[in-house]
Computed example of a mutant assay.
Amino acid sequence: MAESTQGRYVEPGQEFNRDTNYIEDRITRDGRDGWPVEAGRYRLVAARACPWANRSIIVRRLLGLEDAISLGLPGPTHDKDSWTFDLDEGGVDPVLGIERLQQAFFARFPDYPRGITVPAIVDVPSGKVVTNNYPQITLDFSTEWTEFHRDGAPDLYPEHLRAEIDDVAEKIFHDVNNGVYKAGFAGSQRAYERAYDTLFTRLDWLEERLAGQRYLVGDTITEADVRLFTTLARFDAVYHGHFKCNRNKLSEMPVLWAYARDLFQTPGFGDTIDFDQIKKHYYIVHSDINPTGIVPKGPSDTGWLTPHGREALGGRPFGDGTPPQPPRAGEEVPPLRD
């Protein structure tokens, strides 16, 4: 089976393989790929339901890039062809004037052969997609868009820690971020159990690593924490049941659960999470796994607001910087539900 918008492909009896071929153009200060950094020119299209897109929403918030890069929010579900703007009036993105993200891809590549993925950055004047290379998008927000960072923006990718951040992030990608998908979309019992074992071995490693330090690398929030958080935020709501990652819940791993709550309660993280959209996406779109389309009512969300005690480990969430301001009008998420 294949699902183009998710960039996933698996045959019965085989392991899940993610298509990691993305549009590699970058938006840089020197404009070497033809896309110079320019406030107001680009629109980030990022569905709240998607963990890969959620990263870019968080980094945009933390760095204060809201005035420089606008945000388009597709709905939580999509068809086999494209993410759609069904949350907007008339089902049309108010800035790009399109109903489907696919239109921006086809505006640049009429025969674009790959999945229509989020996050994607679109050049507003031309209506053409610039890039959907999600790992590079957040790094470039940190390193190429510094002119437009808010006062007090944190350094999420400090130069002296980049090698360690990259190493930790790579492990997390293969075993956790993508690991839950390897389990959920496994084409055989053997492939599933291998992915399951790898996932929980890495989660145990993270549990041990974070027992004595507040953040993954150094004493401040970095890109590595952003990348882990979006998977942890979806774990109990989706991955534990829907993807059969059920050795235990996140809420049954005391260190990781406290770490995840610490980040959730940090401005810029929890205020980007919409659990209703997350559940609708996975349980409705993945009809091969959940053919009834029934979306679970639970679990309760309010546990995310309980005390975590991680302050005792020290650390400075924003380093020498400050928290971001509350989300701007139109970018808020609904309150948590019991």
Rank of each mutant, 00 (worst) to 15 (best):
G212H: 10
D81A: 14
R194S: 13
G152M: 02
Y259S: 11
E11T: 11
T28R: 09
Y9P: 02
L65W: 00
G40C: 07
I27R: 00
R26E: 08
N290G: 13
V130H: 01
G298P: 00
P74M: 05
R43I: 12
L156E: 04
D288M: 10
D320I: 11
E164A: 13
I221W: 00
A312V: 14
N178I: 02
V124M: 08
L228Q: 03
G303R: 02
L250E: 09
K80W: 04
V238H: 04
P326D: 08
I121P: 00
W145P: 07
A46L: 11
P254L: 12
R337S: 14
G212D: 15
A169Q: 12
R234G: 13
P267H: 04
T138R: 01
P12K: 13
A195R: 04
V217L: 07
F235E: 08
V118H: 01
I278Q: 07
A169P: 03
P326R: 09
G187H: 06
E207T: 04
V295C: 08
R247C: 11
R29M: 07
T143I: 07
E38Y: 05
A211C: 07
R32S: 15
D19W: 06
H308W: 11
F264K: 05
K279M: 10
P267Q: 01
A312F: 06
D197Y: 01
G179Q: 12
A260Y: 11
R32F: 10
R114Y: 12
I98P: 06
G218L: 05
T306Q: 14
P327G: 06
K128E: 15
F264H: 14
S300D: 15
H286P: 11
D274K: 04
T230F: 05
E24I: 08
F318T: 00
I284E: 13
D338F: 05
Y112F: 15
T272V: 12
E164C: 05
V176R: 02
K128Y: 06
Y134W: 15
A258N: 13
N178R: 03
P254C: 14
A104H: 02
V295P: 02
K279P: 02
D140V: 03
R60V: 09
Q103A: 15
D151V: 02
R190A: 14
Q277R: 09
R194V: 14
V37Y: 02
